[in-house]
Simulated scan of single mutants.
Amino acid sequence: MILTLLAFVFGYACGSIPFGLILTTLAGAGNLRAIGSGNIGATNVLRTGRKDLAAATLLLDAAKAALPVLVVSFIASRRLSPMDAWPPAPVLAVALGAFVGHIFPVWLGFKGGKGVATFLGALLAVSWPAGLAFMAVWLAVAFLTRYSSLSALTASAATPVVLWLLGQQGAAIVFAAMAALIFFKHAANISRLRAGTESRIGKA
């Protein structure tokens, strides 16, 4: 229980690092909180006109979940017997912590990003087959609809099902909760999708 709690705190600390805000500030690209949606994620960083910063933000937002999960996975693997279920609670806790940290960072008044890149980073580290499935679904929906938000929503919703089919029931439950938070953070996007006013990929 203590290791699980520490893992969550460690994940939260890593996940709450606002790389998008840091990179745009250091590059003199303006105040990210006053641009577009005010979000700290890669999509809003792209609105600064800096594709390089947006790409870096995307990678770092994924890495700040993946690396803590890998660290805790290594530690947990040394403490478990071959018969124990995988992933164990500390691994799921650090994944959840990193995701929550990105969405609700204490440094920014608990107003963070939408969590898609961090969700994917955590997923790839917990179960890379499920991570590949996420990317396949995202790409397929994006190709068919040209909606980035719908791609993210569909891929995140499919993730718990994929994890369950892979026999990772614990991970399926945790990532289902994370997917619910993604839907919550995309409430405005969902409204625009219903109204037919959501921006498509490649268009303003």
Score class of each variant (00 low, 15 high):
3 L>H: 05
196 G>H: 12
159 T>N: 13
109 G>L: 03
48 T>R: 02
153 L>C: 05
108 L>Q: 07
203 K>A: 13
68 P>K: 04
164 W>I: 00
61 D>Y: 01
20 G>P: 04
152 A>F: 10
139 L>W: 00
66 A>I: 10
116 V>I: 15
32 L>R: 04
92 L>T: 04
196 G>I: 11
130 A>N: 12
25 T>W: 14
63 A>V: 12
3 L>W: 06
22 I>V: 09
95 A>D: 05
129 P>C: 00
27 A>N: 05
38 G>D: 11
191 S>Y: 11
174 V>M: 07
90 P>D: 03
201 I>Y: 14
1 M>T: 11
26 L>V: 14
64 K>C: 02
187 A>D: 14
122 A>F: 10
13 A>M: 12
116 V>E: 13
148 S>H: 06
193 L>M: 15
69 V>H: 02
153 L>R: 06
15 G>I: 06
15 G>E: 04
20 G>A: 05
44 N>L: 01
152 A>P: 06
48 T>L: 02
107 W>G: 07
142 A>T: 09
195 A>W: 10
148 S>D: 10
85 A>M: 08
64 K>R: 03
86 W>C: 07
103 I>S: 13
96 L>A: 15
36 G>H: 03
46 L>N: 11
72 V>T: 00
170 G>N: 11
157 A>M: 08
71 V>C: 00
166 L>T: 07
196 G>S: 12
150 L>N: 06
139 L>S: 07
107 W>Q: 12
133 A>Q: 02
14 C>M: 03
171 A>W: 14
51 K>D: 00
109 G>I: 08
67 L>V: 06
136 A>H: 09
96 L>Q: 07
50 R>A: 05
48 T>P: 05
14 C>N: 00
115 G>H: 11
100 V>L: 15
23 L>G: 06
157 A>K: 03
79 R>W: 10
81 S>V: 14
117 A>Q: 12
95 A>I: 04
2 I>D: 12
173 I>Q: 04
27 A>V: 02
58 L>I: 12
89 A>D: 15
136 A>W: 08
88 P>C: 06
42 A>M: 15
51 K>I: 00
145 T>D: 03
195 A>Q: 05
74 F>G: 13
11 G>V: 03
101 G>Q: 11
28 G>S: 07
92 L>F: 11
104 F>Y: 15
192 R>N: 04
22 I>D: 01
